[in-house]
């Protein structure tokens, strides 16, 4: 590990250690019962004891979230490229992208689950709808944020539409796209969990949301907390992966990823 990476990881880890210590101290000193707020030790213990059940559920929820993210990225980028081709297309369809964004997923998830036979596909669709908008909005903005001088340069050299898209517009849009990707990873996970809540899938296809639901009904609060911790950790890991990708793509040239002087 490089010293710079260590310096970036250390402060948030220190904050986490402090919070966990405070939580442990409060639960112990105030004698809070485990069915209200379990201690961090008990949550950790539950994570280990229920690992088979929780790991399977985590795999299912992560699977839905990642597939939804993939769908959102492919669809979002294609829609953004279509928008960037003409103001007409953008003006005609952008309001519907916004409509998709402002409609609460909880409200349309039951419909999607009725319409789509395969529950897994229905879950992926719901989560993808949630993750789609930031990808469209950011990528469209990026594709339009091309240096006018470079645009003239491409025109002067008689670049084709395809050359202008692949060699100018898409590289210019990358920093914006990665901004959208970071937001979309979190939203895909949230979308997956919300859709699972609505679908209430149990048995083989039980995701973390189902475990939270069941644990709540059974008053198994430590397991509920363990599932919550896993969701939060999955979110952090997904976000970090998105940040890593952004760094790999932009580290040589974009201000956002340059090392401080």
């Amino acid at each position: 590990m490089t010293p710079r990476l260590a310096w970036r990881l250390l402060p948030p880890l220190a904050v986490a250690a402090l919070l966990v210590a405070a939580w442990q101290a409060w639960v112990t000193l105030a004698a809070v019962p485990a069915y209200i707020v379990p201690s961090p030790r008990l949550v950790a213990h539950t994570l280990v004891a229920d690992r088979a059940l929780l790991a399977a559920s985590l795999g299912i929820t992560l699977g839905v979230a990642l597939q939804a993210l993939a769908v959102a990225l492919v669809v979002g980028v294609l829609v953004a490229i279509a928008f960037a081709q003409s103001r007409w297309i953008e003006a005609s369809f952008y309001p519907y992208a916004v409509l998709l964004q402002v409609t609460p997923i909880v409200a349309i998830a039951p419909l999607v689950i009725i319409w789509v036979k395969d529950t897994h596909v229905a879950l992926v669709l719901c989560a993808a709808v949630v993750a789609l908008f930031p990808v469209i909005a950011n990528t469209t903005l990026g594709l339009r944020s091309v240096d006018p001088g470079l645009r003239d340069l491409f025109r002067l050299n008689r670049a084709t539409r395809w050359q202008t898209l692949t060699r100018l517009a898409i590289p210019s849009a990358l920093p914006y796209f990665f901004g959208g990707l970071r937001v979309a990873t979190g939203l895909a996970l949230i979308g997956a969990v919300v859709a699972e809540f609505v679908a209430g899938t149990g048995g083989q296809g039980a995701g973390l949301a189902y475990q939270i639901l069941m644990a709540g009904i059974q008053l198994n609060v430590p397991r509920l907390f363990a599932a919550l911790v896993l969701i939060a950790a999955a979110g952090v890991v997904l976000f970090s992966c998105a940040s890593l990708l952004a760094w790999l793509a932009l580290r040589h040239w974009h201000e956002s990823e340059l090392p401080p002087r």
Binding site: D147, G149, L150, L153, F154, N157, R158, A159, Q163, R167, L168, P171, L174, H252, W253, H254
Partner: peptide
């Protein structure tokens, strides 16, 4: 302004007019 593509190395910037053609 120099109007170079920041995401491309210097040689790749200079190659551009020929490659576009």
């Amino acid at each position: 302004a120099p109007t170079l593509m920041p995401w491309a190395r210097v040689a790749a910037n200079v190659r551009l007019p020929l490659e576009l053609r």
